[in-house]
Design a protein around this nucleic acid. Structure first.
Lengths: 316, 316
DNA sequence: CCGCGACGATTGGCAATGCCTATCGAAGCC
DNA sequence: GGCTTCGATAGGCATTGCCAATCGTCGCGG
């Protein structure tokens, strides 16, 4: 059974006239005649009593019409719904983001995203890398912003920007007197995040530490970590975008000798159909972060006096 | 859009596997693949995210599925409804019947009709000929039992049986002494029904009266007429089937010299699709009335001692 | 009585659709 | 590296859907 035939049936019932019904359906009268006969044969029921005077729906037809109307209305609702959401740059896009990035990146990119993609409703979801990838694969997220490259052919990614790590020191720390810090100097009292945070692994790697470190502290967030450093419990590495927040806590920030950094990537399922949406988001973020990347290259030595993040945040 | 495609869509959503969905739909997997792609193109929306691992409906697909389910269910309801009522010998059949026939015929044929056509729900409607024909043409009746042949090519009819008219006399009427009454003898004090009853016209014609008769009485029903005769107000003609009721009123019935009679016909619209139902009803009535017709031919002279209607009513 | 207009049914031809089998291509698994 | 699984693709064929033209019937008006 074809929805088209139901439309024909409804038209004939409404107009009680094959010719006018055909016109309303934008087909020729014979077409409608034939199709209606086929429908009658398919249903095994005479739908209309034709005489030279009039075309009258049979009682059973009246019953069927009610169902036909609903069926047609539902399919029309489907096309309307589909049409309204055909634009991939429209509708919800669930984006995962790691906790050491979200609080510092989102304030920067939310407004530009809204401006560039007004129909796209971005729903951020903050969690650690492993969980985000899991949710991505489970179709609970559409994309994720990570600092690592994902494994597996089912996920694709592209880099968005690179942010340097900075040494974060209590202002009265002996190393705070240096303009540039050697990563290995941080080892004795470096504080790191809890397991699962990619920043933890990357910070340890930057310092040349492979296994677990001595300190018992496992901070659950970068904000906690920064406050611990400010309180003089040790040193740590913070990503460039968090520099502003770190400085507000009264911490000394210094560039690193080896210029350790992390690259933020956007990740999505290879089969995700709204790739256009992901790529648009990626482009907006990359463009928004471009001045910061340039600045961090140029002014990295002067970062503690004019932090890049601050500088960028002031740019409009 | 084809309902079949919606079924494919529902199957894939349910099985999350093209092969199994195709199997469930009794088509090959490529067919389902192609049709689904076409549906996606028609809607302008990706319905399923395919990867080597899994087939997952997109969010918009989930919305569409709800509508698709309703549409499919409605069309299924249509086929079920049609199938249930495909049998023309099933369902309601609205039959008009003239008032001078209904009360006497229906008791005879109701049981046989119910036995022969158990699925047919006969809805009798009693009214005068003109009104019945009007309602028939307006599709408010499906058939009618009349004593006249209808005019117009849009109506068809077939005769069911013929019933003789009998002279109805008060027992003490002078004519009651005769075995057989000449119609013209009834003229002086014949009573007739009100305008619109075909029996009125036929009784007048039988007596050789063309225009209006002298008596002011215009009985509104045959029962009234019979009671008037029983009360000695005059004579009349009654149709054979009413003979039993007439005799119960203590009236003398006599056959007529010219054997005036009326032929009961069943009438229906030429375009009426359930002709089979009408013809079945016609056959059952004709068969049920056959013994009466035979009896009236044979025993018409003895009718006042063993009334044909009584005789028939006792036959089983 | 005949021609005419209205209207649904029928016909014949053509393009589009729907389905099949066979095959491909990518991914995962011994 | 071969094997399996699974969705996509290709080619061929029957069916379907549509149209223009025509038919058949009915009712109307001259």
């Amino acid at each position: 059974m074809n929805i088209r035939d139901l439309r024909y049936m409804l038209a004939v019932a409404e107009h009680r006239h094959f010719g006018r019904a055909a016109e309303a359906c934008r087909v020729s009268q014979p077409t409608l005649s034939v199709q209606l006969r086929k429908l009658e044969e398919a249903l095994g029921v005479v739908l209309f009593e034709r005489s030279s005077k009039q075309v009258v729906p049979t009682p059973i037809c009246e019953l069927l019409l009610a169902h036909a109307r609903i069926a047609v209305a539902e399919t029309e609702a489907m096309t309307a719904l589909a049409q309204a959401s055909a634009d991939p740059l429209r509708g919800a896009l669930r984006i995962g983001i790691i906790p050491t990035l979200g609080p510092y990146l989102l304030p920067l990119v939310f407004a530009p995203l809204r401006e560039a993609l007004p129909e796209l409703e971005i729903e951020p979801w903050e969690d650690i890398t492993a969980t985000l990838i899991e949710r991505l694969r489970a179709h609970e997220l559409d994309a994720a912003l990570l600092a690592t490259e994902p494994e597996g052919a089912d996920l694709l990614s592209r880099p968005l920007f690179t942010e340097p790590f900075l040494a974060a020191l209590p202002p009265d720390h002996p190393l705070a007197a240096q303009d540039r810090i050697r990563e290995s100097d941080l080892v004795p009292d470096v504080l790191v995040l809890a397991d699962g945070h990619c920043l933890r692994d990357q910070a340890l790697a930057a310092c040349g530490l492979a296994g677990p470190v001595g300190g018992a502290l496992r901070a659950s967030s970068l904000a906690t970590l920064i406050n611990m450093v400010a309180a003089g419990y040790g040193t740590t590495l913070v990503p460039g975008l968090a520099a502003g927040a770190a400085q507000d806590s009264g911490i000394a920030l210094r560039p690193l000798a080896a210029r350790a950094s992390r690259t933020i990537r956007i990740v999505w399922r290879a089969a995700f159909p709204r790739r256009a949406a992901v790529e648009s988001v990626a482009r907006v973020i990359a463009e928004r972060l471009a001045p910061f990347a340039a600045a961090s290259e140029r002014d990295i030595a002067a970062l503690d006096r004019a932090p890049a993040a601050r500088h960028v945040a002031g740019t409009r």
